[in-house]
Design a protein around this nucleic acid. Structure first.
Lengths: 242, 242
DNA sequence: CGATTTCTTGATTCTAATCAAAAACAGTGG
DNA sequence: CCACTGTTTTTGATTAGAATCAAGAAATCG
C-alpha cells in the first residue's frame, strides 16, 4: 500500500491537533470515538445504501469515497476521503440518506455511533466548534466542486482535481498513487470515462503530468494551477477558528 | 413584495422550533442573535467581497443569494436564501472567503458576530446540535446541486430547481415569485442565460409551467418531479435529530 | 416616452457524450 | 511462467447538447 494513504496514529486526535491545542480531557473524549477498529476490503461498502446508518467512521488508513447513485444508475462521487477524515458527517441529521460509502483500497476505520457526537457537544464546546469547522471545510470543498463542475471544461476540471488531491495529500513530492479508475474520476468530475482518458492524454501532451495505472506524476504544478485557476483558499482554516 | 418572502417573526427561533422544542433560556439565547436589524436594498451586498467578514446574518424577510465570482469573471450562485435561513454559515472558519452575499430583493436581516456562535455552543449543546443539523441540511442541498449540475441536462436541471424552490417555499399554491433574472438562474445551474430562456420555453411547451417576468406557475408538479427525478429526501430532517 | 436591461429567436461552433472496437493490463489457475 | 479472462484504457467516428454570436422584441425604469 502506498505511504501516502498509510497509517495515522489516533487519526482524529492527530487531525484535531493540527487545528487546535487539546487538553488531556479533550484528547480522552476524542479517543472514545476510536475504541473499535474495523478493516474493510477494497470495494467493500462501509454502509449499505438505503439502509439507515447510525455510524460515522474515522478513517485511519486507506482511501474511501462517498457515492450517490441516481435512479437511472448514474453515479456521482461526492468526496474522496483521506486518512484522518471523518466519513459520514455530511449526512448527519438527514432523514434518509442515499449516499453510499465505499472503500477504495483496503482500509482501517473506527465506526462510532452518531449519538457520541452529542455527548461530545455536551462535554466540550471547544470540540463542538472544531467539528463545526471541519464541517465547514467539507462544505467549502463541496462548493469548490460545484464551481469546478459548473464552470470549467474538462482539462481545467481534471487539472483542478489533481492539484486538490496533491494539496490535500500534503506531500512535497508531486507524485502520488490515485487508486481509482478513470470511470470513477469521471463520476467525480461529471465527465465520461472516455473523455477522462482523452483529457489525461491532453494533459500529458502538454507536459503537465504523467500517469500510468493509478500513479500520477505532476511535472508542472504551476502549469496545472494556472490552467485550472486553482485557489487554495478553500482548504485553509482561519487562525481565529483554531 | 410577494407574500412568500414576507416577514417571519423572530426568524431564527421560528426556524428552530420547526425542528425542536426550545426552553425559555434557549429562546432567549437565540434572541441575542437578532438584537439589531438592518435593511438592505435589492442588489446591495451584505458583505464586501474579498474583505474579511465577521458577521452572520439571519434573514428575516426578502431574498438573498451567495455568489462566487471566478478570476475570469464567471459567476456561480451557490445558494438562494429564504427568510429564516442563516446567511454565512458556509464560510465559517475559512481563512478568507470569496463568497459574496447579495440581496435579491429589499430585505431585512440581523447581523451578528461569528463569536456569538461560540457563546451559544458553550451555553447549550442542544443548540449546538441544531446548528449542526442546519449546517448538514445546507450541505445536503449543496450535494444535490452537484448531482443536478453534474448529471442532468438543462431541462432536468431547471425542473429540479423549480421543484426545489417550490418545496422550500412550502407554499401549497404552485405559484410563486422568483425575483431573479435568467442570467442568475443560469449562474445557479451552470447553463448560459440564452439556454435558460430556451429551456423555460421548452418546459412551457410541455405544459409543465408558465412563467412571465419573475413569476412562476407550476402546472404539472408531478411532471416536473418525474422529469427531474426529484427526491425530496435531502430536504427532510431525521426525527432523531429533532 | 426614451433608455437600459432582460428576454427571445436564429445561425453557427464547440465541447463532450455516445457508440464501437482494439489494445493494454491485472488476476487466475494450470 | 504462460495462457485465459475480465477489466480498464485508448482511439476513432458520429452525434447531441449547450455555448457563443448576433440582432430584434419585450419589459422595466427613470
Amino acid at each position: 500500500m502506498d505511504l501516502a494513504f498509510g497509517n495515522v496514529r489516533s487519526c482524529i486526535v492527530h487531525q484535531f491537533e493540527r487545528v487546535v491545542d487539546l487538553t488531556e480531557d479533550e484528547v480522552n473524549l476524542l479517543m472514545t470515538l476510536e475504541n473499535n477498529e474495523r478493516e474493510f476490503q477494497a470495494g467493500e461498502e462501509l454502509t449499505r445504501k438505503g439502509k439507515y446508518n447510525n455510524y460515522f467512521y474515522t478513517l485511519q488508513s486507506g482511501l474511501a469515497c462517498a457515492i450517490k447513485t441516481l435512479a437511472d444508475g448514474q453515479r456521482q462521487v461526492l468526496d474522496i476521503f483521506l486518512p484522518g477524515q471523518i466519513i459520514g458527517l455530511q449526512e448527519i441529521g438527514l432523514k434518509n440518506s442515499f449516499t453510499e460509502f465505499r472503500a477504495l483500497t483496503r482500509l482501517k476505520a473506527h465506526p462510532f455511533p452518531k449519538q457520541s457526537l452529542m455527548k461530545i457537544f455536551e462535554q466540550s464546546p471547544k470540540l463542538a466548534k472544531i467539528f463545526f469547522t471541519i464541517m465547514a471545510r467539507e462544505q467549502a470543498m463541496l462548493i469548490e466542486r460545484i464551481v469546478n463542475i459548473s464552470r470549467r471544461n474538462a482539462p481545467e476540471r481534471l487539472a483542478h482535481f489533481l492539484v486538490e488531491m496533491k494539496m490535500r495529500l500534503g506531500s512535497c513530492a508531486c507524485d502520488f498513487h490515485l487508486p481509482i479508475n478513470q470511470s470513477l474520476i469521471g463520476d467525480t468530475l461529471g465527465i465520461s470515462s472516455v473523455h477522462v482518458s482523452r483529457t489525461l492524454k491532453h494533459l500529458r501532451d502538454l507536459g503537465l503530468i504523467d500517469n500510468k495505472q493509478g500513479h500520477i506524476v505532476i511535472n508542472d504544478l504551476d502549469g496545472l494551477i494556472k490552467l485550472s485557476s486553482f485557489d487554495s483558499g478553500y482548504l485553509e482554516t482561519s487562525p481565529e477558528w483554531k
